[in-house]
Computed example of a mutant assay.
Amino acid sequence: MKEEWCIPKVGAEFVWRMEDLLDLYMQPYDPAFPVVCIDERPCQLIGHLQPPQPVQSGRLAREDTEFSRHGACSTFLMFEPQAGWRHALVKATRTKRDFADCLKYLLDEKYPSASKVRLVLDNLNTHTPAALYETFPFPEALRLAKRIEWHYTPLHGSWLNMVEIELSVLVNQCLKRRISNIEQLRQEIAAWEHARNAQKAMVQWRFTPPDARIKLKHLYPSREEIPS
């Protein structure tokens, strides 16, 4: 029997969310309305069964193929692309409460004087204003929710969230090795974060609304009326 692949259907819903994000990225920097991208990734905690052997003269470092598992945790990464700032919170779980705690940190610790934080995030079921109301008393949840402007990526379009690029950098520069406990993971990520922030490292985002209207023209419902 021939296997059939299920191709996600995208169209008007995808287009308006994409246009919203691309327009947001094109706006000039405004410290009163910072654009912050947020997402998280699971991290496995893996240790050595045999001590690794360091580099020696004429010999590369060696690591035994066997390893031990020590559970998993989640790394929540917040990234302000226009300022070249990022911060990671490593948590044991990935619940609505964990997400709400990250938002409270973002609003009260990093941007206490901002009028609103323009938040870019995907459609994970924990990424919702309801997380605030399930975590904090109503007055506190309402206060926090009113300071956020929510911008969601399209379904099947999480690549439009710039933090995905920064998470890839984090994995390649910091996480492609064995880290056995959550405290060590926090220390390693904090060192990576400090170095990246000191450089004010930014994402060179080149996908603009005109690019989308050309390259993804087939997604637009009224193709003959698409502005350049």
Rank of each mutant, 00 (worst) to 15 (best):
E3H: 07
W5E: 10
I7N: 05
P8E: 01
G11P: 02
G11L: 07
E13S: 11
F14H: 05
V15H: 00
E19L: 13
L22D: 05
L24H: 03
Y25D: 02
C37R: 00
D39R: 03
P42F: 14
C43Y: 03
C43T: 08
Q44I: 01
G47P: 13
Q50E: 15
P51Y: 07
Q53A: 09
Q56Y: 06
S57C: 03
R59E: 15
L60I: 10
A61T: 06
A61W: 13
E63C: 12
E63A: 12
T65P: 08
T65G: 02
T65F: 11
E66S: 11
F67S: 09
R69N: 05
R69Y: 09
G71M: 03
C73G: 08
L77D: 01
F79V: 04
E80H: 09
Q82M: 12
Q82E: 06
A83Y: 02
G84W: 14
R86L: 15
H87N: 10
A88Q: 00
A88N: 01
A92L: 04
R94H: 13
T95W: 02
R97T: 14
R97V: 14
L103A: 02
K104S: 08
K104I: 01
Y105P: 03
L106K: 04
L106R: 03
D108S: 04
D108L: 10
K110T: 14
Y111R: 02
S115N: 11
V117S: 09
D122K: 01
L124Y: 14
L124P: 09
T128D: 03
P129V: 04
T135D: 04
F138I: 10
F138Q: 15
R143E: 10
K146I: 01
R147Q: 05
I148D: 02
H151R: 01
Y152R: 11
H156Y: 15
G157L: 04
W159S: 05
L160Y: 15
L160C: 08
N161P: 06
M162P: 14
V163P: 13
I165C: 10
R178Y: 04
I179S: 05
S180C: 07
N181I: 09
E183A: 12
Q187E: 15
E188R: 00
A190R: 05
A190H: 10
A191N: 04
W192G: 00
E193D: 12
E193L: 08
A195M: 06
N197G: 02
A201S: 13
Q204R: 09
W205F: 09
P209V: 14
P209F: 04
P227G: 02
P227E: 12
P227Y: 03
